[in-house]
C-alpha cells in the first residue's frame, strides 16, 4: 500500500516537473522567435532596418557603448534615479497615509486636494519641477517620486482604514496607545496592500524618470532614447528599451522577493 502511494507520488512529481519544463521551453521559444524574426525581417528588408534596427546591430552598439563606458554611465544614472524616486514615492506616500489615518480631521480637509492631485497627469508638472529644482537629477528623482506619491497615499490610506476594527480592539483591550495600535495592528495588517502598491510603483517610477530625462536631456537612458530619436539612430533607442526592460524586470523581482518574506504566513 505504502509503496503504491510512493510510486504515485513519484509519478505526480514527475508530471509537475515536466509541465514546468514545458512552460519554460515555450517561454524561451517565444523570446527566441521574437529576436530571430526581428533579425530576419530586418536583413530581408521586410521592415526598414533604419527605423526598426535589428538585434545584431543593437548587440554591436551594445559592445561599443560598453567599451567606451558611456552605457554604464547612462544606465547607472537612470537606475539610481529610478530606485531613489521609487523609494521616496513609496515611503513618503506611506508616511502621508499614516498622517491621514492619524488625523481624521486632516484627512477630510485634504480629501478634495488629493483627488485633484491624483487626477492630474504628474508628468505635466515636469517643466515646473525643472524650473524649480534645476535641470539635473533632483528634478528627475522628484518626477519619479511624485508620479507614485499620490496614488500610494490614497491606496495605503484606504488599506489602513479597512483593517478590521477588531484587531485594534484587541490592542486597545491591553491598554495600547494609538501609536502602539498603529504599529502593532494597522501597519502590519496592511502589508499585502503595501506590497501591491510597491509593484505598481516600480512601473510608475520608471515612467517618471524616463519622462524626466526626456525633458532634462542631459544623461540617462531616457536621454539616450530622445537623442537616438533626434539623430535618427534607432539602434540606440532599441538598445535603451532592451536595457530598461531588463532592469525593470529585475526591480519587480526584488519586490516579489520582499513580498515572499513579509507575507509568507498568510493564507
Amino acid at each position: 500500500m505504502k509503496s503504491k502511494h510512493e510510486e504515485m507520488h513519484r509519478q505526480f512529481k514527475k508530471q509537475t516537473k515536466t509541465r514546468t519544463l514545458q512552460i519554460r521551453a515555450v517561454q524561451i521559444l517565444i523570446l527566441l522567435s521574437f529576436f530571430i524574426g526581428w533579425e530576419t525581417a530586418a536583413s530581408a528588408r521586410w521592415i526598414d532596418p533604419l527605423l526598426f534596427s535589428s538585434p545584431s546591430r543593437v548587440w554591436d552598439l551594445f559592445l561599443v557603448r560598453v567599451q567606451d563606458g558611456s552605457l554604464i554611465m547612462h544606465t547607472s544614472v537612470t537606475l539610481f534615479e529610478t530606485i531613489l524616486g521609487f523609494l521616496l514615492g513609496t515611503f513618503l506616500g506611506t508616511f502621508l497615509a499614516a498622517i491621514l489615518w492619524w488625523s481624521p480631521f486632516l484627512s477630510r480637509v485634504l480629501d478634495p486636494y488629493i483627488v485633484i492631485l491624483n487626477s492630474m497627469p504628474k508628468v505635466a508638472l515636469g517643466p515646473i519641477l525643472i524650473v524649480g529644482l534645476g535641470p539635473g537629477f533632483t528634478s528627475i528623482i522628484a518626477m519619479g517620486a511624485l508620479i507614485s506619491l499620490v496614488i500610494t497615499t490614497m491606496v495605503v490610506y484606504n488599506a489602513f482604514r479597512e483593517v478590521d476594527d477588531n484587531y485594534v480592539k484587541v490592542m486597545k483591550s491591553f491598554g495600547a496607545t494609538k501609536r502602539q495600535s498603529f504599529f502593532g495592528a494597522i501597519f502590519p495588517a496592511s502589508y499585502p496592500t503595501m506590497i501591491s502598491t510597491l509593484k505598481v510603483n516600480v512601473g510608475l517610477a520608471w515612467v517618471g524618470v524616463i519622462v524626466g530625462e526626456f525633458l532634462v536631456s542631459k544623461q540617462g537612458l531616457g536621454y539616450m532614447i530622445i537623442y537616438g530619436f533626434q539623430v535618427f539612430n534607432f539602434t540606440l533607442v532599441m538598445l535603451s528599451l532592451v536595457i530598461i526592460a531588463i532592469l525593470a524586470t529585475c526591480m519587480y523581482q526584488t519586490v516579489e522577493l520582499v513580498e515572499k518574506k513579509l507575507i509568507r504566513h498568510r493564507t
Binding site: 478590521d164 477588531n166 480592539k169 484587541v170 483591550s173 491591553f174 491598554g175 502590519p188 495588517a189 504566513h265
Partner: peptide, 27 residues
C-alpha cells in the same frame, strides 16, 4: 481600557503575521 480587563471576541482575531508565541505575549 486597561490590561486589568481581558476581552475575548467572537472570532479569535489572532494576528496572522505573528507566531503563536508572539501572539500570546502581545499584551
Amino acid at each position: 481600557p486597561t490590561p486589568e480587563t481581558g476581552y475575548m471576541l467572537q472570532q479569535d482575531y489572532l494576528f496572522p503575521w505573528l507566531t503563536i508565541e508572539q501572539n500570546i505575549t502581545l499584551g
